[in-house]
Amino acid sequence: MRCTTLAILTASALSAQQSAVDAAGSYAAAIRSLGTFFLILLGLIFLIVIALALIPLTRRHRGIEQEPLEQTHQPSHGTETRLGTMVGIATAVTILILFGLVVASVSVGKSIAGPSTHANSIAVEITGNQWWWYVRYANLDPSRIVVTANELHIPVGRPVMIRGSSNDVIHSFWVPNLQGKRDLIPSRITTLWLQADRPGRYRGQCAEFCGLQHAHMALWVVAEPAVQFESWMTHQIEPSVAPSSPDEQRGKEVFLNSGCVLCHAIQGTPANGQVGPDLTHFASRMTLAAGTLPNNKGNLSGWIADPQTIKPGTKMATVPVKSEDMQPLIDYLESLR
């Protein structure tokens, strides 16, 4: 029983935190309110229309022999005028309601477009790739630039400007708990503002079909209080930690002497590939392969040995690793906190 609860908790920790109706920030709350407003108003109109349509059905016919109305009677002048007025009123009301909905949409669109002042905000570049997210924290001081992947840490209560682009096809950045979608378009920069008002982990995913592994292109947004965010940032700026055991040292050598370095970078080592995710602080991330699997040694070994079975079509190459090198390699990578 306890085990089942544990399993459910683990599962929900990784899967249930992606919901547009559970708003964690003011932008998402505005979108949710608009949705609720539309739902209630249009629901009411639907009910009224159905009720009006039901009234004639429930009326008793005067007699089945009676011929259809239009064949027997010319409507009187009075009926004609009354019908005309009613149709006119209905049209006017419809236009008014639609206009009201447009005003509501536009004003919500304006309110979620960004904060009134950019003071206190941070900027993050997000670049879509088939099928993972490149994340870069811009800074005027180059030594304070942070590059990571598939995980976006943001401080609670501060506006975050996402500058999005794409390296290949059109992707769409969508974290439903925080904001609406924004397309990431090759050779173009699109912007989006996020703000989380309560700490939490919110799942986002690509919302524009982008190829075979579109469904396995997720990212996690970790919203945390300022102190934790700053300590995360300070840690991410650091180069990778040095191996702390002969086994990890061996793993580092395996990494540096294999094809891994052609695509991946680990700051503090000669590995400087720019094709795949930066692995400097790989072990600090929750998932691997863009949200495909929880990040642990078991999943990592399967991912390295046979990425195409786990994520068919992934650009991660199947790099031949000698069987006895697998253990040091995963021990080293999982030491990169």
């Binding site: 085990c3 399993a7 683990t10 929880p294 642990n296 040694k297 078991g298 999943n299 990592l300």
Partner: peptide, 12 residues
């Protein structure tokens, strides 16, 4: 079964 999922045995 819970531990098998947790350790990531299923990726291999």
């Amino acid at each position: 079964a819970h531990h098998i999922a947790r350790y990531g045995c299923g990726s291999c």
